[in-house]
Design a protein around this nucleic acid. Structure first.
Length: 369
RNA sequence: GCUGGAAUCGUCUAGUGGCAAUGACAAGAGACUGUAAAUCUCUCGCCUUCGGGCUUCGUAGGUUCGAGUCCUACUUCCAGCA
């Protein structure tokens, strides 16, 4: 069983430590999105220096390229990409939802590679096998997101996710038998925006022999608090919970932590960075805007990231306007630092009892309320 | 000096009688939440009560119902010959 210590609690929120074979994660924590075994534009050294505790790679993408056998041959994900701290893998379930032309059956999902048109099939069993080959510390069960917001579709997707969870657990147990490494499995809670379905899904997952939980299918801050309260009041307190895919908006991180989530991942910060949308304490700014041409101040005056300590807004704008690779590097360092550090501060404020004040001050300033 | 060729939005460019005029770049702005994203969208002559109105394709004339497109002259640039 994955070890998870809880040091303090405040309502549903908690401060803890997840102990993985590759080290500890102090929670709440923001996990960097390293979909293709890399955080886009950044080196692992840079990720280390900006304070990232863990990364999350995607099974779907790694099956297509370079193939999970290759990662196994390299000695596992940590050896392959030189990230020697904790790792997660997402199951590939999200791609069923996000890609066109997938054929879903009870057995699994058939699709053509978007790269070369080859036919692939992912099943709960093959997803588990792939994740074991990749060798991340924490695996996600192969889940199914609904094809629409309708209750019927949500319910169908939830039930399929549950049936697939049982197959994932069986396969994971088989793979764990005789394995030389410790790898852990999270169940994924579905149910869309329907509280009764969320409750049903949480109950189902809560009773299973898994190491933690992913909460999937949450897409907006609206209604997120209610969903998380429903789900996290049911999930067992002593296992970690990962909020899948949320964290582009700082409010998501506050609400997520406040209502009992321990880790987050999101592609938003690095994607925003590559597109020139950079976090400041006063909200996101588009560094490409003409008004920053002569702005020789740092992006964030009291930010300790490499970008803010060394470069000005005018310089960053110049790098973006000239389409220099370094623009994306510096911007990604800053945005990733920003969210990692925001969650670090949330953790500290929960530990010392100042969370509500910190949250109010932060969000008031960020969203100009 | 002679003979050809060329002049169209900030730049390059499409356009051979129905055109406010093609495409790219540049510029301005917006979007992005378990990454088919170093991507995508919009604006880009002036004005507008969003119906339209006005002024544009080196300059000045001309032909024509109608000219960026045809004709004449001029200006500038390019090539060849002197």
């Amino acid at each position: 069983m994955l070890e998870f210590d809880i040091h303090s609690k405040q309502g549903l929120a908690r401060v803890g430590t997840i102990h993985t074979p590759h080290g500890d994660i102090e929670t709440p924590a923001f996990v960097g999105a390293a979909t293709r075994a890399v955080v886009k534009a950044l080196t692992m050294k840079e990720m280390n220096e900006l304070g990232s505790q863990a990364i999350l790679a995607n099974t779907y993408h790694l099956i297509l390229r370079p193939g999970t056998d290759l990662i196994k041959e390299a000695g596992g994900l940590a050896e392959f990409n030189s990230w020697h701290k904790p790792t997660f893998t997402d199951s590939g379930g999200f791609q069923i939802f996000s890609l066109p032309n997938v054929k879903i059956s009870e057995q699994g999902v058939k699709f053509k590679s978007h790269i070369d048109g080859r036919n692939f099939e992912i099943t709960p069993e093959s997803s588990m096998q792939a994740q074991w080959a990749i060798g991340a510390d924490i695996h996600m069960a192969f889940d199914h997101l609904a094809k629409s917001e309708s209750r019927a579709d949500m319910e169908e997707a939830m039930h399929r996710t549950h049936r697939w969870l049982d197959r994932c657990i069986a396969e994971h147990r088989d793979l764990a038998d005789g394995a030389t490494t410790e790898q852990y499995l999270y169940a994924v809670v579905q149910g869309g925006t329907f509280n009764d379905l969320r409750a049903k899904s949480a109950k189902y997952c809560a009773e299973k022999p898994v190491d933690g939980f992913g909460i999937g299918g949450v897409f907006t801050a609206d209604g997120m608090a209610e969903i998380l309260q429903t789900v996290n009041n049911i999930l067992p307190e002593n296992k970690p919970r990962h909020l899948l895919g949320m964290g582009e908006e700082p409010i998501d991180l506050f609400v997520g932590a406040e209502f009992g989530c321990d880790t987050f991942d999101c592609v938003g910060p690095t994607r925003m960075a590559r597109n020139g949308s950079l976090y400041t304490k006063d909200g996101r700014i588009n560094i490409k805007n003409a008004k920053y041409t002569h702005d020789f101040s740092p992006l964030e005056p009291d930010c300790d990231c490499e970008c803010c300590k060394n470069y000005t807004r005018a310089y960053l704008r110049h790098l973006f306007k000239t389409d220099e690779i370094t623009a994306k590097v510096l911007a990604s360092i800053h945005n990733e630092y920003f969210v990692v550090h925001t969650v670090d501060r949330i953790r500290e404020s929960l530990a010392d009892g100042t969370f509500q004040t910190f949250k109010n001050d932060y969000l008031t300033r960020y969203y100009h309320k």
